[in-house]
C-alpha cells in the first residue's frame, strides 16, 4: 500500500509543476501589453510603467517565469492589485467556506445519489426506475445557477423560510449545499444504478439468494458494497464539475469563499488573484483525485498490484 501511495504521489508532482506553468502562461495570453491591461483604462503612462516594473514585464519571459516559479516554491502567490494584500492570505481566509460547501455538497450527493440509484436498480424497468432515471437526467441537465435561483425564488422569496445569501447562520448553508449537490446527485445516481444493475446479475448474488438470504439483505449487505466501488471513482471524476459549480453557487449566494473571490477579481481585472485562485482550484482537484485513487486502492486491493 505504501508503495502504491508513493507512486501516485510521484506521478502527481509533474502535473503540479505543469499546472503552475499553465497558470503562468495564462497571464501571458492577455492580448496586447499586459501592463497596459492591468493598469486599467484610466491609467497614465507613468502608472503603466510602474506596473510593468512591479510585475517584471520589462524582463525577458524566461526570467519572469523563473521568478514566478521561485516565488511559488516559497508559497508566495503575489499581491492583489486591488487590495494590495497577499493573495495567499486572502485565499486561505476564504478557503474554509469553500471546503465546507464542497464537502457538504459531496456528502449530500453521495447519500441521496446512492439511495436513488439503488432504488432505481432494484425496481429496474418499473415505475420508480422510470421516474428516477428521468429525474437524474434533469439533475445533470439543470444549470447550477438556475437551480440556485429557483431555490431562492421558492424558499427565500415566496416562502421566506431560508436566507437567500450569506454564511452567517446554519440555515444559510442549506440552499447553497442543495444547489451545488444537484448535478452530482444526478451523476452519482446514474452511475450507481448501472453499477447495481450489473452487480445484481452476477453469480455470487444468485448464490446468496439461493442460500435464502432476505431480499433487502442481498441488496444492502452484498450488492451495494460491491457496486459502491466504481462510485468512489465517480466522486473524483465529477469533483472538477463541482468546483466549477461552487464558483457559480458562491456568486449567487454571496458566499464568502474562493469562488466569489475569483469572480470579483475578474471583474476588477486583478489578475494576480485570478491566477492564484485558479491555481488553488487545480491543486485541490489534483489532491482529490489522488485521494480517490488511494481510497479506491485501499478498498479494492486488486488495483494496487498491477
Amino acid at each position: 500500500m505504501m508503495g502504491y501511495v508513493t507512486r501516485r504521489l510521484l506521478i502527481a508532482v509533474p502535473t503540479l509543476v505543469g499546472v503552475a506553468v499553465v497558470s503562468f502562461l495564462l497571464m501571458r495570453l492577455i492580448p496586447g501589453d499586459p501592463a497596459r491591461v492591468l493598469a486599467g483604462p484610466d491609467a497614465t503612462a507613468a502608472d503603466v510603467e510602474l506596473i510593468r516594473r512591479q510585475f517584471g514585464f520589462d524582463k525577458p519571459v524566461l526570467n519572469q517565469f523563473l521568478d514566478y516559479m521561485g516565488r511559488l516554491a516559497t508559497g508566495d502567490l503575489g499581491r492583489s492589485a486591488r487590495t494590495g494584500d497577499s493573495v495567499l492570505a486572502e485565499i486561505l481566509a476564504r478557503l474554509p467556506y469553500t471546503v465546507m460547501l464542497a464537502v457538504l455538497a459531496t456528502l449530500l450527493a453521495v447519500l441521496v445519489g446512492c439511495t436513488l440509484g439503488v432504488i432505481a436498480a432494484v425496481r429496474r424497468e418499473g415505475l420508480a426506475d422510470l421516474v428516477l432515471s428521468g429525474l437524474s437526467v434533469f439533475g445533470v441537465s439543470m444549470p447550477v445557477y438556475w437551480v440556485g435561483l429557483l431555490l431562492v425564488i421558492l424558499f427565500s422569496v415566496n416562502l421566506g423560510w431560508l436566507p437567500a445569501a450569506g454564511a452567517e447562520s446554519w440555515q444559510g448553508y442549506i440552499l447553497p449545499t442543495v444547489t451545488l449537490s444537484f448535478f452530482t446527485i444526478g451523476f452519482i445516481s446514474r452511475q450507481m444504478r448501472s453499477a447495481m444493475v450489473e452487480t445484481m446479475e452476477m453469480d455470487f448474488i444468485r448464490t446468496v439468494r439461493a442460500k435464502g438470504v432476505a431480499r433487502w439483505a442481498v441488496v444492502l449487505r452484498h450488492a451495494v458494497r460491491n457496486a459502491a466501488l466504481p462510485v468512489v471513482t465517480v466522486i473524483g471524476l465529477q469533483f472538477g464539475q463541482l468546483l466549477g459549480g461552487a464558483v457559480i453557487t458562491e456568486t449567487i449566494f454571496a458566499w464568502p469563499g474562493i469562488g466569489r473571490l475569483l469572480v470579483e477579481s475578474i471583474g476588477a481585472r486583478d489578475f494576480t488573484t485570478v491566477q492564484g485562485a485558479i491555481l488553488i482550484f487545480a491543486v485541490a482537484l489534483i489532491l482529490v483525485n489522488l485521494l480517490t485513487d488511494i481510497v479506491y486502492a485501499y478498498i479494492d486491493p486488486r488495483i494496487r498490484y498491477d
Binding site: 505543469g18 506553468v21 472538477g240 468546483l243 485570478v274 485558479i278 489534483i286
Partner: peptide, 24 residues
C-alpha cells in the same frame, strides 16, 4: 498525454472562466 493531464488537472469550467477573463 502529459500535456492533456495538465489541462485536465484544471476544473473544466474554471479553465474556460480564466481564459475568457484573460482574453476578454
Amino acid at each position: 498525454q502529459r500535456f492533456i493531464d495538465i489541462v485536465l488537472a484544471f476544473p473544466h469550467f474554471l479553465l474556460a472562466l480564466a481564459l475568457v477573463a484573460v482574453l476578454g
